[in-house]
Every structure is written in C-alpha cells, then in structure tokens.
Amino acid sequence: MVDAAGELSIAVRRPDTSLRRETPIWVVRLNDQVFVRTWYRRESGWFGAALVSGRARVRVPGLTADVTVEDVGSAAADLRAGLDDAYRRKYGSRGAGSMVTDEAAATTLRLAPERPPGL
C-alpha cells in the first residue's frame, strides 16, 4: 500500500494523545521499512512536533496505522544512498530533487508500527 501511494498523510500525536492536523508527505519503503522526509522546517511544523512526540497516525488508501517515529537523519551513508535512490525511483529524478539534498536527508524519519503496551 505504501509503495502504491503517492503520498502518506501524517498526523502527529500531541502530549495529550490528541492528533494534530494531517499533513500530506512523500513516502518511500526500503528493506520493508517506511521512511519520510521533509525538505524544509526541520524544527517546526509537523516535523518538529514528530521529533518531540515520537508518535503519529499515518494514512494511505486502504490503511490507517499508529506509528512510532524515529529520527534517522544522521544514519549511515548506505542508508542515505538507498533512500535517495528510493525517492528517485518513486518520484523521478527531477521530482525527487528537493528530497535528496543534504538538508532533506538530515530530516529522515523511520516509521514503525506502534506496539500495544505489554507486547
């Protein structure tokens, strides 16, 4: 579902567990893991809130899921290269241009299904 979706909608959880407004973002999958990036506003907007909360709800056609959010923007070079390639394959080399810059790569987040307490 994620591979077929042009965008993913993300609503970051507030400290009181309510959801912020949904924001559409580009999404890629690499090695069965889901990643998103922003090309601007690292510390503010939905992205800054995601860094603080570490939790969100995402939606693509046919799927809504609660996820944990992990900042992997300073990850190893091989992960960066794989994600840059995934963005280029999915969105085209010209369309993905702003998503494969050093600044955008530094905003890489890994989204993982949230596990219920006790598991």
Rank of each mutant, 00 (worst) to 15 (best):
M1V: 15
V2W: 13
D3R: 11
A5M: 09
G6F: 07
G6K: 13
L8Q: 02
L8R: 01
L8I: 14
V12N: 00
R14I: 03
D16V: 02
T17H: 09
S18N: 15
S18R: 11
R20V: 04
E22F: 09
E22D: 06
T23A: 01
T23W: 00
P24Q: 12
P24K: 10
I25V: 12
I25H: 01
W26F: 10
L30I: 06
N31Q: 13
D32G: 09
D32C: 04
F35L: 07
F35R: 04
V36H: 02
R37N: 07
R37F: 07
R37A: 05
W39H: 10
W39K: 00
W39G: 04
Y40M: 03
R41S: 10
R41V: 07
R42L: 14
S44V: 09
S44E: 05
G45E: 02
F47N: 04
L51C: 01
L51W: 01
L51F: 03
V52Y: 03
G54A: 08
R55H: 10
R55S: 05
V58I: 13
R59I: 10
T64E: 15
A65G: 08
A65W: 01
A65S: 14
V67I: 13
V67L: 12
T68F: 03
T68V: 08
V69P: 06
V69R: 00
E70T: 14
E70D: 14
D71Q: 13
V72Q: 02
V72F: 01
V72N: 00
V72K: 00
S74Y: 12
S74A: 14
A75I: 08
A77M: 06
D78A: 12
L79D: 07
R80T: 15
A81S: 15
A81T: 14
L83V: 12
L83C: 07
D85I: 10
Y87E: 05
Y87A: 04
R88T: 07
R89G: 07
R89V: 10
Y91L: 11
Y91G: 04
G92T: 09
S93W: 08
R94V: 09
G95E: 03
A96W: 00
A96Q: 02
G97T: 07
S98C: 12
S98T: 09
M99V: 00
T101G: 08
D102M: 05
E103T: 14
E103M: 14
A104S: 14
A105I: 12
A105R: 06
A106G: 11
A106R: 15
A106Y: 05
T108Y: 04
T108A: 11
L109R: 04
L111P: 04
L111A: 06
L111F: 09
L111N: 02
A112L: 15
A112S: 14
A112H: 09
A112Q: 10
E114F: 10
R115V: 15
P116F: 11
G118M: 00
G118S: 06
L119Y: 11
L119R: 15
L119W: 13
L119E: 09
